[in-house]
Design a binder for these strands. Structure first.
Lengths: 209, 209
DNA sequence: CGAAAAACTCGACAGCGCGTCGAGTCCGTC
DNA sequence: GACGGACTCGACGCGCTGTCGAGTTTTTCG
């Protein structure tokens, strides 16, 4: 399901030919994704880039989406990089949120095509859908917990159920980054908006109208 | 480009056979969309539902996506139904926003699969992309104007550029409705969150530290 | 070393869905 | 009744996908 065969490496030995080919396919996918959207990439191109025939491709991956999943797995770790301080903290800690979002923006900057393609393919491709769901749930759960903490401490106003609000924030990030030319330019505004979503009080404008 | 032939209706006459077939295709599309996502619907099915052969289908529409566009066009009007009072008003007029969102939710309720499918196909299908862009721009423009008005009147706090903030609100709506089981249940929370995005003030917690 | 096993390669094939083409048939008009 | 536009369809070619079985290379081990 993940890697084709179990390699019984009896002794120190460099990566087998197959290992290199597998990497070549992955690299080709990365290169192509830098130039065009996932939907326009064909297995032929992936195979050609790795200098094997199209049928040989199937020795390494079950489908084009399997390649995507492999790439996605490599990203799973990066995706919550630097999110910890924000998610585990309390109150409107603007700098922490900014760092968290900046890290996320950097990933979208370099892997936008991959993420956008994966998100588009998610409904209709269970494994990708599950990957996305897992990631989302992880984020939403931690953020929801943070919201509850802040509310209990009187730091955040009441409002939508924590997991709903957290889901909206996750959705907003994804939509905003997916549609942006330069994700990094969004960070500042996203910080402001998220803080408002979480802490923004509708103090009736003290202009008495 | 839009409708297949120009019908020279010389005199009062019921809809031609072709008109009925065209409607049959559209209806079939609607029925199928109620049962499965757009990507899983094939031209064969559309043709079969209208009781014509697959090649006859092409007499009426250029492609599956052309059918989608036709359906979408029928929706264009509904999509800003009841949005006027909110978009043309000023200040945190919660009831108006709620009505606007409720109307939108009702549309997502019945046409979710169509809208979700169209959104997924938008990048990679220029006509659909343009349709989405036009709709988005229309909403963003009006909402941005509203934001400027409110800010000028001191009713809303400063923040992201109006069109950016408006874009985020549009994105959030779309993402939230697209992912919801029952869009109508989201309305209340969406109202709260949007108002916070627009009017939520971060009164710095003068809590000591 | 040499044979068995595994890792790997490929051409050929079958399938599906798309869109086109040209040869039709139907039907209202003059 | 013949002309033309509306309409229909089968057959075809294309591009992409995934499978199969027969080959070649590489590794393992007696």
């Amino acid at each position: 399901m993940s890697s084709p065969p179990a390699v019984p490496r009896g002794r120190r030995r460099g990566p087998s030919k197959g290992d290199r080919r597998e990497q070549a396919i992955l690299n080709t996918a990365r290169e192509l994704l830098a130039r065009k959207p996932l939907a326009e990439i064909t297995i032929d191109e992936l195979a050609a880039g790795a200098e094997i025939s199209r049928s040989s491709f199937y020795f390494y991956f079950d489908s084009k989406l399997a390649v995507v999943i492999a790439l996605l797995h490599g990203l799973a770790g990066e995706l919550d990089a630097d999110a910890g301080p924000w998610l585990d903290g309390t109150g409107p800690d603007e700098p922490a949120l900014r760092r968290s979002l900046a890290a996320l923006a950097a990933i979208w900057q370099t892997h936008g095509r991959l993420l956008a393609g994966a998100l588009a393919a998610a409904p209709g491709c269970p494994p990708i859908g599950e990957w996305r769901a897992r990631l989302r749930t992880a984020h939403v759960t931690r953020l929801a917990a943070r919201i509850e903490r802040d509310r209990a401490a009187g730091l955040a106003p009441d409002g939508p159920a924590p997991h709903v609000l957290a889901g909206m924030i996750d959705d907003l990030r994804t939509a905003a980054f997916a549609g942006a030319d330069d994700p990094r330019r969004l960070v500042g505004d996203l910080v402001t908006v998220e803080l408002r979503m979480l802490y923004g009080d509708l103090r009736v404008p003290h202009s008495e109208g």
